[in-house]
């Protein structure tokens, strides 16, 4: 894989209304950059804005996946920690010991 496209060589902070942005340098496969540029041109927007959209969606997906793993692991930890009798209580089944009659 080629990493031959440099977007920017400078790093500095730039404040826009309601949105903090930062310039940085990233190296992307040339083919990806070509596609991003073509999309930006198609949507009449900038390469940065188009790239931001993809990064934002990728980060959202990553967070969702992490959340999914967290929830499953939590359920397994929580409900795997109890005995069968305790699980009945956790599921709302409350049973009392049977009183044996003395003969």
């Amino acid at each position: 894989m080629q990493f031959d496209s440099v977007i920017d060589a400078k790093l500095h902070h730039m404040k826009q209304p309601g949105k903090l942005t930062r310039r940085t340098t990233v190296t992307l496969p040339a083919a990806y950059l070509d596609q991003i540029e073509a999309l930006a041109c198609e949507k009449n927007t900038t390469v940065s804005a188009t790239l931001s959209e993809f990064v934002s969606e990728g980060l959202r997906q990553h967070a969702s996946q992490k959340n999914g793993h967290d929830v499953v692991a939590a359920y397994q930890r929580i409900f795997g920690s109890f005995s069968e009798e305790e699980m009945l209580l956790l599921d709302g089944v409350v049973m009392e010991p049977i009183q044996r009659r003395k003969r």
């Binding site: 999914g68 499953v72 409900f79």
Partner: peptide, 18 residues
């Protein structure tokens, strides 16, 4: 999901929560 679903149940829930 926590006790009886096993790996298939866990995989289903993971994908659902995505």
């Amino acid at each position: 999901f926590g006790r009886f679903g096993g790996p298939p149940g866990a995989a289903w829930l993971r994908r659902h929560v995505e």
